[in-house]
Simulated scan of single mutants.
Amino acid sequence: MDKIDVVEAACPQCSPEEEVMHTVVKSHLLKCEQCGFIHRLPHEKKKAIKIKVIVSRGGASSAQQLEVDADEELYAGDEFVIDVGEDVSGVRIQSLELLTGGRSERAKAKDVRTIWARAIDEVVVKIAVQRLGETQSLDYKVNGDYEFAIGDIMKLKGYEVRISSIKVRDGGIFKRTGKAIKAKDVRRIYSKIISQERRAVGEGLRASRKRSGENARKA
């Protein structure tokens, strides 16, 4: 059995001030044992540079900056924390735009013009619901680390639906019952209605907020 390396390091998500146990995922990546967040290995910035980061969240995007060591290797799939406006957001690298042109999934920071990233701390998951031969697409906002499992039953717009398959962002589709996928890795969830409730009890997070706003205005 391969030896699993563990180290103590500060976690930018759950323990930025005190060191906690981490598992070494790659030579440059650590996984926090307390919260599961994956981040870069802490290091002394000898040649710090700032790189523009385009962060997309839903249909909107914003430009931020990330300060890194010039010789640090960046990879598509890396996750890190960045200031987005007045908030701090967890993001994942989608691709790297190079100074020489084109994009790559791996490069040294000094060779990167722009990091293209996606917010993953809170994501909107597309859920396709099959009903009477028709398919309706719903948006469901949830924490990026929330797990959906095939076979799970959810309440959406007054119906109980069962998840039948999940399409992930790398293009694969899973159909095995019990297979769980984190929301940040989901491209689309496919579901089927199994029962209808007398009144809407779920309607997803977005619909709930909308109803609350309408009730407040009526009051």
Rank of each mutant, 00 (worst) to 15 (best):
G58R: 05
G58L: 07
G58H: 05
S61D: 14
S62A: 10
A63E: 07
Q64S: 11
D69S: 08
A70R: 14
D71S: 09
D71W: 14
E72G: 06
Y75K: 12
D78R: 01
E79G: 04
F80Q: 13
F80N: 15
V81F: 09
I82M: 13
I82Y: 13
D83Y: 11
G85K: 01
E86L: 07
E86P: 03
D87A: 13
G90E: 14
V91I: 13
R92T: 15
S95N: 06
L96T: 10
L96P: 05
E97F: 06
E97I: 05
L99D: 06
T100K: 09
G102T: 11
G102I: 10
R103C: 12
S104E: 03
S104Y: 05
R106A: 09
A107H: 03
A107N: 11
A107I: 03
A107T: 02
K108W: 12
K108N: 03
K108Q: 10
A109F: 10
A109I: 08
I120P: 06
V124H: 03
K126P: 07
I127V: 14
I127D: 06
A128V: 13
Q130R: 13
Q130F: 11
L132K: 15
G133P: 11
G133H: 07
Q136C: 06
Q136V: 12
S137H: 03
Y140V: 15
V142Y: 02
N143M: 15
D145V: 01
E147Q: 13
E147G: 01
F148Q: 07
A149C: 15
A149E: 10
M154N: 12
